[in-house]
């Protein structure tokens, strides 16, 4: 069995590290609970879990300021929790109840929060890419210095509209960060089986967009790359691409036979690269927290997730009149 490599020493503050730990753990526990509720039949349809990829959104949210926007695909629960949306509202949307962010009309893949500047939750692979550039277009038009984090996967990276968007984003110098969450599998098709490109961020070169590959399992590396990309965008230098090398531990959705990769491969990533264990080691080694402190955090988060689950079960079903509302503003 492989062992974790020793974490690098870090000068990151105790408070920041603890915050990353909490936020990543919240996502993981939330997703584990969502998986359970799905198994109980309380969540229907598609449910794409973010377990394994937590460092990407948590690191990038740490680089964002109020007013910055984010938009992503259907694997969106982590992004919502990381930008501060209420776990109760997210879980109740998963169960299709009136307490959900879309009052039960969106589901797992379609949630939004104007307050938190979260623009979805999009079920069509790569559709969020031009939409994200459009959000950045609006900010530039309105003359503020907000940036938009536009997340998409390695699968979406082969959609034509991504490159239509790259072209316009650089042409018009839009403040958008394209975050490719390369979890190495588009559903069941590995990157190697879908492209001969060795890197995905490198495709930006054709449009003049700078970018880099980042260890997406290391929240500190993600935060550092995010800071750099944000500075580039806020300085009016146009878009930036971050290719986050990450890994999802669970299936694509809930009914994934997992024939396209081995159990050993998944276990090796968990053992050697897990983002939460990484921060846990940093906290312990630096003496920022004891085992007991971390257990207390775990308990606290479990309780929050349980409350969200309870809320999502107790929240009434959508009123039948809701069928006919919100079609037109």
């Amino acid at each position: 069995m492989a062992t974790r490599k020793a974490p690098e020493t870090s000068n990151i503050s105790k408070d920041d590290l603890l915050a990353y730990y909490r936020e990543m753990l919240l996502i993981r526990r939330f997703e584990e609970k969502a998986g359970q509720l799905y198994g109980m039949g309380l969540i229907g349809g598609f449910c794409h879990l973010y377990i394994g990829q937590e460092a990407v959104v948590v690191g990038l949210e740490a680089a964002a300021k109020t007013g910055d926007k984010r938009i992503t695909s259907y694997r969106d629960h982590g992004h919502m929790l990381a930008c501060g949306m209420d776990p109760k509202g997210v879980m109740a949307e998963l169960t299709g109840r009136s307490g959900g962010y879309s009052r039960g009309k969106g589901g797992s893949m379609h949630m939004f929060s104007k307050e938190k500047h979260f623009y979805g939750g999009h079920g069509i692979v790569a559709a969020q890419v031009p939409l994200g550039a459009g959000l950045a277009f609006a900010d530039k038009y309105l003359g503020n210095d907000n940036v938009t984090f536009t997340y998409f996967g390695d699968g979406a990276a082969n959609q034509g509209q991504v490159y239509e968007t790259y072209n316009m984003a650089e042409l018009w110098m839009l403040p958008v960060i394209f975050v490719i969450e390369n979890n190495q599998y588009a559903m069941g098709t590995s990157v190697k089986r879908s492209t001969k490109s060795t890197t995905l961020f490198g495709r930006g070169t054709a449009y003049g967009i700078p970018g880099e590959q980042v260890d997406g399992m290391d929240v500190l590396a993600v935060k550092a790359a995010g800071d750099k990309a944000v500075a580039h965008c806020r300085a009016g230098k146009g878009p930036y691409i971050l290719e986050m090398m990450t890994y999802r531990y669970r299936g694509h959705s809930m009914s994934d036979p997992a024939k396209y990769r081995t159990r050993e491969e998944v276990q090796k990533m968990r053992d050697e690269k897990d983002a939460i264990e990484h921060v846990r080691d940093l906290l312990l080694q630096a003496g920022h927290a004891s085992d007991e402190d971390l257990k207390a955090i775990d308990r606290d988060i479990k309780e929050r997730v349980n409350e969200a689950a309870e809320f999502s079960k107790e929240s009434p079903e959508a009123d039948l009149s809701e069928l006919w509302t919100d079609i037109y503003a």
Partner: peptide, 17 residues
């Protein structure tokens, strides 16, 4: 680039324009 600019414009509408 109709697919791209239609999507971009929809995003701009989400963004307040």
């Amino acid at each position: 680039t109709e697919h791209g600019f239609a999507g971009l414009a929809v995003g701009a509408a989400f963004g307040g324009l």
